[in-house]
Design a protein around this nucleic acid. Structure first.
Lengths: 352, 352
DNA sequence: ATTTGTCACGAAAACGTTTTCGTGTTAAAA
DNA sequence: TTTTAACACGAAAACGTTTTCGTGACAAAT
């Protein structure tokens, strides 16, 4: 049976050594007020009993928790977990902890989670907006949080209505250069597989696609654009997804290039193409938009637009902590910045 | 410019309403001591100003944070992120928050992270041991944490030296039934691709493999066992991994079945097999051990042993919270339990 | 002998709660 | 009229820190 020795406090040290709590505190912080003798005695005792200041008490006293709250729609997702890793990395380096909340793409869970954390548990938020919130366009909880003096940094899924620091991917540019790559590689009829427009990133990627076609003098054919309703969880209903894509291919036999706004769509496109007897990349070339793990290990491996998720997390954490650690004058107008992370085109075997 | 209205406290409400702090507190908690009039007044005021008790102050007062600390080796990993989701799910349901720390497979980071959180930030730990810690076999930080009265629940990577609640996968059984499946499917020469033995799960899966062969009257051929050093990050050095596997196949042409202890090894085996002109599952059948996303989307899709990561997380959270919420008599000997999560064989296209 | 100054330490407040106990006021019982 | 009881509220302690300010002892300077 293990001997229980509860964490020791200043008060207990003070009692043992027959000095006051203040003296112990000062001795441990090496205050010049305290004599060398006493310091030595106190420090030795503290080390022996492995004294560590209680974080909660410190948080209360300093009105600062040194903890960052992350709210994301889903954690079982490479993009988001990479962002978390980035946040954790710089947070830890700068002396902060990270506490996570999952909204599960639900508005109410997002609100509840934020309220729980906002009541003193954390100093600021890093978050990506849930799909439901984006649809409802109800952003009161963000504004309320910020009006209470708690800063927010949004990443990836952001919205221009909210005034705060943001870290976003150059979705437009990434999509455009992907499509340009397809054009350069000789594609004449390029399909787009995307989501409904309310998710800002889907919209921007669609615009990048259109812009690239436009610049190259291609005509925009709406039959080549497949807008999927991501209400449906295609991880579960893979066949539904594949049917949609198969329909696209069959009614547009000339398609020789595909740009998909995420990894799953791209892989499904490749799968369907193969099923229809098309060779990749000879007959049809495919590019996805993602930071996922599937691309690298698919057959053929998938050329993708990398979003540098971890860098986004790091940047978001830096933005937040910088704001937390600069004195904000009461009446000075805050000025927020939006950091754009550039994408990289990672060429693999699904393009020529 | 947004108007700043800092979070309101009991003291401020008390001052505004010209009553004492105690009265406000009691009124809000509907104490019978307080008159209906006063209650009404206080509650209305509190609602108007959206009063919420400060979590930190409550934690300090109650010596209970209602927060769980998770320490995992890596978050960009489907297995671990699914576990987190499970933990988060039941933690939230039961009124707890989750704070994460990444050890990054490093002993020192594991120790530091635990110390940070153990100083009052959390009520208990859920963790999976880092590889480096497993190698060093230095578990003092776990024992110290527990001796301070902070419970630990370990999952997946556990060690029998430590006395605490545990949630593990039936690695032995899962591996055994996978290999049995291969045997049933007609495989005569089954290779094993595994890791070095210090990670307990690798060891157990290897034993499952051997036991299945043994039961079936097969002879154990050591050339069929490939033990890979996972010091090398094979995500980065994929070619090195594939070379090893290619060597295995070339020097054992008779191999018609492969059991791999993780997803990456299994996929690489399939890739190499294809490269060598073997058809899957006709010429060679492959089964992996994982909860990952690659298996489902690979070509052919991979038959795997599912570990039910989310269930592990849920179970671990329940174990921890149960322990936190039962009065533990000072001198009563604690008794710990180990929950074994059974695996499922998910049959896909890499087996007949 | 008195003033000044330094040294080494302790008391107390503060952070935001909850809770125990005490107390003044009023109405009912003796 | 006096005692008792219920009622409604406030003071204070506690959780574990840090920090400001005050103070007693002693030595040095006047």
């Amino acid at each position: 049976m293990i001997r229980m020795k509860r964490k020791i406090t200043l008060k207990q040290i003070a009692r043992e050594l027959d000095v006051s709590i203040s003296t112990v505190s000062k001795a441990l912080r090496n205050s010049p007020e305290i004599s060398a003798d006493t310091k030595q005695k106190v420090q030795a005792f503290a080390k022996l009993y492995n004294y560590r200041p209680n974080n909660i008490a410190l948080s209360l006293k300093n009105r600062k928790t040194n903890t960052i709250g992350i709210i994301i729609p889903e954690i079982v997702h490479h993009f988001f977990s990479k962002v978390i890793r980035g946040v954790e990395l710089v947070a830890n380096k700068r002396g902060y902890n990270v506490i996570i909340g999952l909204s599960n793409e639900s508005f109410s869970k997002e609100v509840i989670n934020m309220e729980m954390l906002a009541n003193g548990s954390i100093d600021g938020f890093i978050l990506s907006i849930s799909k439901e919130t984006l649809q409802l366009q109800d952003y009161h909880h963000f504004n309320e949080t910020m009006s209470q003096g708690m800063p927010i940094v949004m990443f990836d899924r952001v919205v221009s209505d909210i005034n705060c620091d943001k870290v976003i991917v150059n979705d437009f540019g990434g999509a455009k250069s992907a499509v340009e790559k397809l054009i350069t590689n000789g594609c004449k009829s390029i399909a787009l597989i995307t989501t409904k427009d309310y998710v800002s990133v889907g919209k921007l990627r669609t615009q990048g696609y259109m812009d690239a076609l436009n610049d190259a003098g291609f005509e925009l054919e709406s039959e080549l654009i497949l807008k999927l309703d991501d209400k449906l969880d295609y991880e579960v209903h893979l066949d539904a997804l594949e049917n949609e894509i198969e329909h696209l291919f069959k009614s547009n036999k000339s398609v020789d290039g595909v740009f998909a706004v995420n990894e799953l769509y791209a892989l499904s496109a490749m799968k369907v193409a193969r099923k229809l007897g098309l060779e990749i990349p000879k007959d049809i070339q495919v590019i996805g938009f993602t930071d996922g793990v599937l691309s690298k290990h698919s057959t053929p491996s998938l050329t993708t637009v990398s979003q540098h998720a971890q860098v986004m997390g790091e940047k978001a954490a830096d933005l937040l902590i910088n704001r937390l650690e600069t004195e904000h004058n009461e009446n000075e107008d805050e000025t927020y910045q939006t950091v754009v992370i550039e994408t990289d085109l990672i060429e693999r075997k699904s393009t020529k």
